[in-house]
């Protein structure tokens, strides 16, 4: 069914009734879909849950501190409670004992949620290909972005986060 334009629809201007879209656009109003607007908001107010495990956690702290300053992307608040977080940065090696805990924390996070696997240990087990570690956190939770490195530099983590932002913006749907 073709979209019908109703002349004189009020779009939120202050000039009273009878303003059409063309005029609104000329006054600088942004038109977008709801999905894109939501994705934009999600992208720019991502709250990570702290899930620091090993060496990578120290680099994650360094990323949040003054020199690298993650707050440039509105992410400096590492939430202590998974209920308030929508991004889990798995920073470090995940042991067999930690696996169930990690999954539980992931389950406690509200939708929509994303996971960054930071460092080779979290991504594949890395150099510790042994009985003690879970060989890749993606066997437990779905992972959106893998950041390689042992440990990744703060710049690398920030790049991963920016890629995730791009992905969130592209998703552009309400789930």
């Amino acid at each position: 069914m073709p979209v019908q334009r109703l002349p004189g629809t009020r779009l939120g201007g202050t000039d009273g009734p009878g303003v059409d879209e063309e005029q609104e656009a000329r006054r600088g109003v942004l038109l977008t879909t709801l999905g894109r607007a939501v994705a934009w908001a999600r992208k720019n107010s991502m709250w990570p849950a702290t899930f620091g495990l090993a060496c990578c956690a120290i680099e994650m702290m360094a990323t949040g501190a003054a020199d690298y300053d993650l707050s440039r992307w509105g992410m400096e608040i590492f939430r202590a409670s998974p209920r308030q977080a929508d991004l889990m940065i798995v920073a470090g090696r995940v042991s067999q004992k930690m696996g169930p805990v990690l999954r539980r924390i992931y389950d406690q996070m509200p939708e929509p949620k994303w996971v960054i696997s930071m460092g080779v240990c979290a991504s594949t087990g890395g150099m510790f290909n042994n009985y003690g570690l879970i060989q890749g956190v993606d066997t437990i939770v779905p992972v959106d972005i893998y950041v390689p490195g042992c440990p990744p530099r703060p710049e690398m983590l920030m790049y991963g986060i920016l890629r995730l932002h791009a992905k969130v913006q592209r998703e552009a749907r309400i789930k």
Binding site: Q96, N129, Y131, I134
Partner: peptide, 19 residues
């Protein structure tokens, strides 16, 4: 005599293959 890898993760039936 315990293997280095190639053990069950003992979590939801996943298995770690040897390298």
């Amino acid at each position: 005599d315990h293997p280095l890898a190639g053990v069950n993760t003992q979590y939801k039936g996943a298995f770690i293959p040897p390298p």
